[in-house]
Design a protein around this nucleic acid. Sequence first.
DNA 1: TTGTAGGCGTTATCAT
DNA 2: ATGATAACGCCTACAA
Lengths: 343, 343
Amino acid sequence: MTRRTTIVEVAELAGVSISSVSRVLNGIPARKGTEEKVRSAAAQLGYTPDATGRALKLGSSLQVAFAVDDIGNPVYTEMMQGVEEGMSGSGARLVVASTGHDKHDLLSLVQSLSRGYADALVISPLQRTPELVQALLDAPVPVVVIGDLGPDVPLDVVRTDSRRGVVLAHEHLVASGRRRIAFVNGPTDTSPGRARLEGFQTAVATSGAAGPVIQASGFTVTAGEEAWAQLEALGPRHRPDAVLAANDLLALGVMRAALNAGRRLPRQLGVVGIDDIQFARIFSPSLTSVSLQARERGRLAAELLLERIATPGTPARTRFVAPELVVRESSRSATDAALGQSS
Amino acid sequence: MTRRTTIVEVAELAGVSISSVSRVLNGIPARKGTEEKVRSAAAQLGYTPDATGRALKLGSSLQVAFAVDDIGNPVYTEMMQGVEEGMSGSGARLVVASTGHDKHDLLSLVQSLSRGYADALVISPLQRTPELVQALLDAPVPVVVIGDLGPDVPLDVVRTDSRRGVVLAHEHLVASGRRRIAFVNGPTDTSPGRARLEGFQTAVATSGAAGPVIQASGFTVTAGEEAWAQLEALGPRHRPDAVLAANDLLALGVMRAALNAGRRLPRQLGVVGIDDIQFARIFSPSLTSVSLQARERGRLAAELLLERIATPGTPARTRFVAPELVVRESSRSATDAALGQSS
DNA sequence: TTGTAGGCGTTATCAT
DNA sequence: ATGATAACGCCTACAA
């Protein structure tokens, strides 16, 4: 750790004014000798301009913030990679802020981030509170929301239809001969939790292949394992022949626990997840999942952001991404295999 | 997106001076009427102090940066969670900067991040270049490195011994009766790549159970799948009876590809990874892995950081974390099962 | 081409 | 208790 070096010291060492230093370092032409002196002095002192002073003066930080509730979920990592991809070449750096397991406020995060540290904000909140929406509207920088924001909020949004995603999954399970389909949901005080439950109810109302509904303690693998324990406790006569999980981590947890309990997958138990994270394909049996196109959503968000920066003042827009069922091994029944069904 | 509100406007609306606004908002006692006026004006305008101006004045951003090459690798997410855990209660926010797949410079990232946007830096670099080391030494904020930094660099470091980790894995495979052990490494122009290769060579020199060495194109699942293809191409007579992979993503890729090719795991092929990411336990067969304690290393890094901030000027310290073999299904042979071997 | 000076938004010192 | 004012480090008219 070295002392802070400022432009003044560089100027003194080089024997020129601070303006000359600033100019040279920003690529504005100067006399050759001056340029030389400045560069050598800067190098000697290991000088890098202070980002704070620069941002204060310029009113821009060259940073875009990506804020999520739990970067521990791979789906958000993929989304982030999409954002990164969409922003590449824009000259801005992406910084990620996650509330992680500590339930810090996404709210205060948004506020301070958008007041200085970032020129724009991409956020994918699990919970949509009125305060959060207000903070987003009050933010002095462009904001793009990935997720459900409710109607008539004048903000750029990238959304998908996870209700429909659940229905797709359910229809698929029914079509592969499953009759007693349990739904393992995450917390219903979240937007995805509510939407996916609605989707399940809709699907059941149509086809009737209902099973127990479990609300797990989170959207995590561990929560999925616990959920299976509850299902197992129902006893052999009431156990489901398929599980529809509200996301892939839950699905993976259910599969692991069911495997541990000696169940045969997919013969005795079909499993379908949602999100289609990259591990879904890798797992054995590979996990059937409904892709909500996280990466593409991230990419679209970045696109909206760049367009808004280029032409501010345009009305808020919504980009829609359709869910897509990806059939893999975890949901094949004997019947499926015979039919050679694929996505 | 709303216009920027400054302290001046709040002061005007409240009918007080900017000093009073600043004081009230920073919790310094004021007359009740003043406090009231300021708070109501601030609320009405939705005012949040500008982080840039504040950081410039205070010389501190209340942010700690965590920089890694690829946040897409779950091991870094876990490390990040450790850092977060270790910092909780410090009042600082953690921001993550990842170069992702774009090979932006970790170097320039370090420089600008440490010059204003962060009060401290935790970094876990894949490659250790002289320039990076110099930039780290020149950083005007405390820096903690997780990884290998070479000898005699006066920086706080959290390290582990991944050579030893590889040796542990190899010994385990030999002990479970594997004779032809392939090594699937990541790029050797990285510190982990080099260290793990050395570990493998050491282990082979001791026990002799050598197999082909493959250098995959990255530390990723896909690279692991490709690596298995190469192994498969060797033909039945030269195929290994075990794979030691340089990290878990490679190992998972190898397993997936081998399963696709119809291999029986672990009977025909034992697999061991390194890192012990959370998915290692979940996968089926569950993956034997050497834990490098990513989370704990993150926690220790945060600890070092907080101590250095509390008492600057103390000599650089190194924290060491020992690798630990975690035996699971992927490496059990018939013999193992009979012996009831566990970790 | 170069230097002087002002100001970005904030906090803190110093009068009042 | 409150207000005027000087920094923090930088960039950029504007003047020389």
